[in-house]
């Protein structure tokens, strides 16, 4: 089964780490992405770079942001192809953000009929 591991960061949590620790944390992210079960993923630029689009009555409305005062901000995701939820949850627990004040949401991916 394929799962998306959606990473919600505590803003500033990674930047606040001392250089050496931060490098070690990034190495952990890299290692997860090199796992043979990893089938995709991306790290997003900070939320300050975001633009939101909404279509109302056929017109696209573009706004800067969002800059809602949310505690955690979506920062990136992995996609893993694993046997079951337990395996996905174990991988999720290895994502550094989860222990740095953030959260990881694990969602199964809808399988497209081939």
């Amino acid at each position: 089964m394929k799962y998306a591991l959606l990473i919600y960061d505590q803003p500033g949590s990674h930047e606040a780490l001392p250089d050496q620790e931060r490098e070690a944390v990034y190495a952990e992210y890299f290692e997860l992405s090199r796992d043979s079960r990893c089938v995709g993923g991306a790290q997003l630029h900070p939320v300050e770079t975001a633009t939101t689009v909404e279509v109302k009555n056929g017109t696209a409305l573009t706004t800067d942001g969002p800059f809602a005062d949310t505690k955690e901000v979506f920062g990136g995701y992995y996609m893993f192809d694993v046997a079951n939820l337990d395996e996905a949850l174990e991988l999720a627990a290895r994502i550094p953000s989860a222990r740095l004040g953030g959260k990881v949401e694990v969602r199964p991916i809808v399988e497209q009929p081939s």
């Binding site: 799962y3 079951n84 939820l85 337990d86 996905a88 199964p108």
Partner: peptide
């Protein structure tokens, strides 16, 4: 079923 909770 959908989230793949295993029977183990």
């Amino acid at each position: 079923k959908q989230a793949g909770i295993p029977f183990t």
